[in-house]
């Protein structure tokens, strides 16, 4: 187990390094001159060159990259062109808002999806199954932002049970987390159902029954743990999806998260902020994947051998 963990963590470094290269190149090879953004087009070439030198933009690309990487390792993500504050400081403020929504969404998704998926599998081809599956199909087909708007309209605007926007209390978190959780749960429930159907006809389930275990124990102890293995494998992939979803919902629910920060920065061409935001978001997704992999190893003992 320990060897597996060390191996996984070791593999993080090349992935993170590759990520920084991609983020760096994406912004530097994009069309447009950043100097234009800083000073506008109506200055003398001399001043332009001065500023270019000041930002280190006149140096060769590999040197610029190493400079960027060196600063990154020191925790320095540069300075916002618009806000004139360190990017790291802005992100530290914004990131918890996004993380909170992603984690809450994922929790709601699992709490809803697992019981529904299991129930649908046990009651396969009955009315219960059909209702669960049609509901989840509706959930999958609904765009996140639309569901968010509808929930806002009903629960915040009409019923006035929750605040329309903002950040801070659980009431602010509830509607966006529900939106995110529900759409994700729709997909997860289907995966749980098919995985459960696969597990239920395995020989070891028959063995469990032959021991005299109640159906509840057979399902909850013997079947569920096996059925969750593929779900956990996909968790790694879905973490990116969830993070993306929360970025969209930050716009709908006007939450001051990383997603809003990115969109504002892109619109204002505040490229150090965009770059820093990308680094932090992708790192979060990579770490999320690591978490899923480790969880996978805990649930499936066979994994430690590989």
């Amino acid at each position: 187990m320990l060897r597996y963990v060390i191996k996984r963590i070791f593999f993080l470094f090349p992935i993170l390094l590759g990520m920084t290269v991609v983020v760096f190149l994406m912004l530097h090879l994009a069309p447009g001159d950043p100097i234009d953004l800083i000073v506008g087009p109506n200055v003398t070439p001399e001043i332009r060159e001065n500023i270019r030198h000041q930002y280190g933009l006149d140096r060769p690309l590999p040197i610029q990259y190493l400079h960027f990487l060196g600063n990154l390792l020191k925790g320095d993500l540069g300075t916002s062109i618009i806000q004139h504050r360190p990017v790291a400081e802005i992100i530290i403020q914004r990131f918890p808002v996004t993380l909170e929504l992603s984690v809450a969404g994922l929790l709601i998704s699992f709490l809803v999806a697992i019981p529904i998926g299991v129930k649908a599998a046990i009651k396969r081809n009955t009315l219960t199954d059909y209702i669960c599956m049609v509901t989840s199909l509706v959930g999958i087909s609904m765009p996140t932002f639309w569901l968010g708007l509808m929930l806002l309209y009903i629960f915040a605007y009409k019923l006035r049970l929750f605040p329309v926007s903002g950040y801070g209390t659980w009431k602010h978190l509830f509607l966006p987390a529900l939106t995110l959780g529900f759409t994700d749960a729709a997909l997860t429930a289907r995966m749980v159902r098919s995985s459960m159907l696969e597990v239920i006809r395995q020989d070891y389930i028959r063995t469990a029954r032959s021991k005299g275990l109640s159906e509840k124990l057979v399902i909850n102890r013997h079947a569920l743990k096996n059925a969750l293995i593929p779900i956990i494998t996909l968790l790694g992939l879905r973490i990116g999806w969830i993070m993306g979803g929360s970025v969209v919902l930050e716009i709908v629910f006007t939450r001051p998260g990383l997603g809003r920060m990115m969109i504002e920065a892109i619109l204002a061409r505040d490229y150090p902020v965009v770059q820093g935001g990308m680094v932090v978001l992708t790192t979060a997704i990579i770490l999320g994947n690591l978490f899923a992999d480790l969880l996978y190893a805990i649930v499936d003992p066979r994994i430690k051998l590989r």
Binding site: Q202, D203, Y204, R206, T207, A208, R209, S210, K211, G212, L213, S214, H222, K225, N226, I229, V299, D300, P301, R302
Partner: peptide, 25 residues
Amino acid sequence: EMRKIRGNKISMIFQEPMTSLNPVY
């Protein structure tokens, strides 16, 4: 009542030892 008999008074072994044990316990 059957559950109290299964695995207790009557028990069973199966053909496939490779797949008859739960892999995660």
